[in-house]
Design a protein around this nucleic acid. Structure first.
Length: 595
RNA sequence: CGGGGUGUAGCGCAGCUUGGUAGCGCGUCUCGUUCGGGACGAGAAGGUCGGAGGUUCGAAUCCUCUCACCCCGACCA
């Protein structure tokens, strides 16, 4: 039981001008958080209580799923990150600092390295596996652009778990733990009262072979997810597969090839308009290169998509079989690419080049493309007439002398065919990523040479998985999902208090003893109670009550006492309720909470 | 990192064009009247105008540099 007058809940009428999202506005106005710097926040008492509740749910589910909690340092010697090259992969995202001796350290953005290093020294036998350890701590990422309050901070609270195995399959294998974590995450977010989707995801810089994201369904989310209503398939737009799209190079030309002078055209929209077509009538040819160059890889990769589509690096990687990145502009120009004006014809003009074409960029009698010289575009481009080298092997073969390939290499858009149900189309939704699970494989154990002897005395690399939850982000996501014009409406399991007792006349002895009796009875039943005993006018207390979003409000005042009871209402219910007899209040309150 | 913008009292803002002793609303404190959905009156406290340098008799205001923060984009859990 806590009295409002004896804690710190600084509510305000106005939100800071820069707050735009409901979670940012209400958490600030209701006195949960306060901005200290860009992407850095104080968690005031109410926020701390919510975080603790979320963490408790996480601990219960993680422990039940066989994981063990531990804690490793925030301050990490930079050498550990250098071991996996993540000091470079993460780049500026890593907070780096120097100690008095000039040694470099980082504030941990995630802890695969430290945990792997720790386990390497203490796990030496297959008999100790599988092992799944987790921690809840503050992470640090020097985001280019922190934003949206708690949703993307530079300092945030995260639960991270790491599992270790010698097998993929079997009861001790990675897949069993991955599935257990999947289920634990479903339990956790369900218990938090969130409406969420589990989607297939790209694994990002953490690396690995498979991953799922847990997305809170919310239009203000930063992430786009694609779903197929027929099959239930859902994926991050970065990862989303697209169903079969027929294509053929054997399409007759409909226009002569013509070159146009198009100086100073900033974007594809302007060029399309100038040429009298639309972005969907253009080909976009992106010059890429292997992320790591080697003798057995081509020097350049051309990715061709329709002008209104976006190239997906991950899909290009899967199509060519190695990681790619945007081509270095200076080097590409030196190799003869007119960056910004490249056409597919460069595949046979530039040395050591392969090309991947999206199916939607193949069909069509006349395309607008670059002219392979600055400030010029062509119209009327036709694959069959203008790039006849492609034709001999025909549409059933996706490889033409292994230098040209047709494959899905673009981001999915709404209306694309579903990859899982014939005839169905994909729809787009927005989401807030609150959880992410990965099958890492041996990326980190290889980097740290973490291998142990198996039953047959063979030395084998340890197989890893990792599993993250944004704890502070989850709190913000709850508010994004559940609020009205007047403030927050907490799901009961994560509410800072379950019940708020509003005293109309706190100085009145009868009011106070009635409140105490109810609060004692509720507290004994495990209910968290906050008593608003401030000497404020009732209107102020009611406004504040709606703002901070406690699920159940009990109002006690002279008028209710005259009628021998108190008012009982749920935060969701807009109407003023009748009087509940005093003896029935605790019981009625419990059913409101549980109902 | 590109583009745009903002720094003046705890919060929200005006003042800057045209230099002349720093203002408003909310909040805070005191007193009084109020008391079931952000009351009213009277009084009070609170600001090196983000920082440094410059111009000037005089700078919140003009100039230079710098720092911080926000939005869009790129990027990303």
């Amino acid at each position: 039981m806590q009295h409002w007058s004896r804690t710190l809940i600084p509510t305000t009428r106005d939100a800071p001008a820069d707050a735009e999202l409901p979670s940012h506005i209400f958490l600030t106005r209701a006195g949960y958080i306060r901005r200290v710097g860009a992407g850095i926040y104080d968690y005031l008492p109410l926020a701390k209580r919510v975080l603790t509740k979320i963490e408790t749910i996480i601990r219960e589910e993680m422990n039940a799923a066989g994981a063990t909690e531990l804690l490793v340092p925030h301050l990490v010697p930079i050498e550990l990150y250098a071991g996996t090259k993540r000091d470079q992969e993460y780049g500026d995202l890593l907070f780096k600092l120097e100690d008095r001796h000039g040694r470099l350290a980082a504030l941990g953005p995630t802890h695969e390295e430290i945990i792997t290093e720790m386990l390497k020294g203490s796990v030496t036998s297959y008999k100790q596996l599988p092992l799944n350890v987790y921690q809840i701590q503050t992470k640090f990422r020097d985001e280019f652009r922190p934003r949206a309050g708690l949703l993307r901070g530079r300092e945030f609270i995260m639960k991270d778990a790491y599992s270790f195995h010698l097998e993929i399959d079997g009861t001790a294998g990675l897949n069993a733990t991955y599935d257990a974590m999947y289920q634990a995450y479903v339990n956790i977010f369900t218990r938090c009262g969130l409406d969420f989707s589990v989607v297939e995801a790209e694994s990002g810089p953490i690396g690995g072979s498979a991953s799922h994201e847990f997305m809170v369904n919310c239009e203000t989310g930063e992430d786009t997810i694609m779903i197929c209503p027929e099959s239930g398939y859902a994926a991050n737009v970065e990862k989303c597969e697209i169903g079969d799209r027929p294509w053929s190079f054997d399409t007759d030309p409909t226009e002569p090839l013509k070159t146009h002078h198009t100086p100073g055209m900033p974007g594809i929209d302007a060029v399309a308009e100038f040429l009298g077509t639309t972005p969907a009538g253009m080909l976009k040819t992106i010059v890429m290169q292997p992320a790591e160059r080697s003798e057995d890889k081509p020097r350049w990769v051309l990715a061709v998509v329709r002008g209104d589509h976006d190239v997906n690096e991950g899909k290009v990687r899967d199509a060519v079989g190695f990681a790619v990145e945007l081509g270095d502009e200076a080097e590409a120009k030196a190799a003869g690419f007119a960056i910004g004006y490249v056409s597919p014809r460069m595949v046979f003009k530039a040395p050591d080049t392969v090309m991947v074409i999206d199916p939607d960029a193949v069909n069509g009698g006349a395309w607008a493309t670059g002219s392979d010289k600055p400030d010029h575009h062509d119209t009327g481009f036709n694959w069959k007439r203008d790039l006849p080298e492609l034709l001999p092997e025909g549409p059933d073969n996706t490889c033409f002398g292994c230098s040209v390939k047709v494959a899905d290499i673009r981001n999915a858009v709404p209306g694309d065919p579903s990859p899982r149900a014939a005839g169905a189309t994909l729809e787009a939704r927005r989401g807030i990523e609150v959880g992410h699970i990965f099958k890492l494989g041996t990326k980190y154990s290889d980097a740290f040479d973490f291998a142990i002897l198996d039953q047959d005395q063979k030395r084998r690399a340890v197989i890893m998985g990792c599993y993250g939850i944004g704890v502070s982000r989850t709190m913000a996501a709850c508010v994004e999902m559940s609020h009205d014009d007047n403030g927050i409406i907490w799901p009961t399991p994560v509410a800072p208090y379950h019940v708020l007792i509003t005293l109309i006349k706190p100085e009145d002895e009868a009011t106070r003893s009635a409140a105490k009796s109810i609060a004692d009875s509720l507290s004994a039943a495990g209910v968290d109670v906050l008593i608003d005993d401030r000497k404020e006018r009732p209107g102020v207390k009611f406004k504040d009550a709606d703002l901070i979003g406690i699920p159940v409000r009990i109002t006690i005042g002279p008028k209710t006492l005259e009628q021998g009871g108190a008012e009982l209402k749920h935060r969701r219910d807009p109407d003023r309720p009748g009087i509940t007899p005093m003896d029935d209040v605790p019981g009625a309150c419990m059913s409101l909470l549980l109902g």
